[in-house]
């Protein structure tokens, strides 16, 4: 289990995160949502071991994150930051292949090919990374991160993704989220920051709702992903509805002038 206990983080005495407790279980897809500046990315960096927290602790399978070497940590968790640039003209294949850097034995190329085909970037393999479009770059980076934990292992592992699908078109977003749901069955806990609420409602198992550096609500989607909680979180009218009374969820938010228009009609 990946645990964050009593996490605090301050920048020059200004609290960015105040007392956050979270648990990420292997086999579950957990999503962090919240308004801009809520501390999502900071929490993400603390959990992935980039920055130490001012107070509290981060535990991977029961051991503190700073007790691992970078090599050991790379075997139990893979991280995709929000933005990554590549400073030299590497090809897409070379970027994905970097994910195998820490593999204890010679890595099977078939698995790289498999990941690239699943993410629909196989045809880009010889292209220079820096000449790809935003969505293509994102899939190449995701491929690099996925290959790092692709091989099945006996111990639980974690995948941390900071807005991994923000530049992708809608069909690719579904493709990637399906893939993540498949991946979690390999004893992997997936944690992602996402902004598209209807995708969150339909794919996540658990949601962590953050506001002003604190967790406002967390739990199963069925329990906490409600119109009421979302409206509180974002300070904006949001509606969650069941689609055709099936398991699918529709999340709406309308422009304010439409809502005002409707209100005036009612009056």
């Amino acid at each position: 289990m990946l645990q964050g206990n009593n996490i605090h983080f301050c920048i020059t005495d200004r609290p960015i995160i105040g007392d956050v407790n979270i648990k990420l279980e292997p086999g579950k897809f957990t999503v962090i949502i919240g308004p801009n500046g809520a501390g999502k990315s900071t929490l993400f960096k603390i959990l992935s071991g980039d920055i130490p927290c001012s107070k509290g602790e981060v535990l991977y399978n029961g051991k503190p994150v700073n007790s691992f070497s970078s090599q050991q940590l790379a075997r139990i968790r893979a991280v995709m930051p929000q933005h990554s640039s590549v400073s030299f003209p590497f090809s897409a294949w070379e970027v994905v292949e970097l994910g195998t850097l820490n593999a204890p034995q010679e890595f099977d190329q078939k698995e790289i090919i498999e990941v690239m085909k699943k993410l629909q970037i196989w045809h880009l393999r010889d292209r220079s990374y820096n000449l790809l479009s935003g969505g293509e770059k994102q899939r190449v980076q995701l491929g690099r991160v996925l290959i790092q934990i692709w091989k099945k292992q006996a111990f639980p592992r974690y995948l941390l993704l900071d807005e991994p699908i923000s530049s992708m078109d809608v069909s690719l977003q579904h493709l990637v989220l399906d893939l993540l749901n498949e991946l979690k069955t390999r004893n992997i806990g997936v944690l992602s920051v996402l902004h598209d609420l209807s995708l969150v409602g339909n794919y996540a198992d658990e949601v962590i709702m953050m506001k002003n550096g604190n967790v406002s609500f967390q739990g199963n989607v069925a329990d906490v992903f409600t119109s009421y909680n979302l409206e509180f979180l974002f300070g904006y009218p949001i509606q969650v509805r069941k689609f055709n009374d099936g398991p699918g969820l529709l999340v709406h938010s309308l422009p304010l002038h439409h809502i005002n228009h409707r209100l005036s009609q009612v009056q």
Binding site: A74, R75, V79, S84
Partner: peptide, 11 residues
């Protein structure tokens, strides 16, 4: 080449 943070993530 991907960045120091990314290199750290990769071990």
């Amino acid at each position: 080449a991907l960045g120091e943070r990314e290199a750290y993530h990769m071990g």
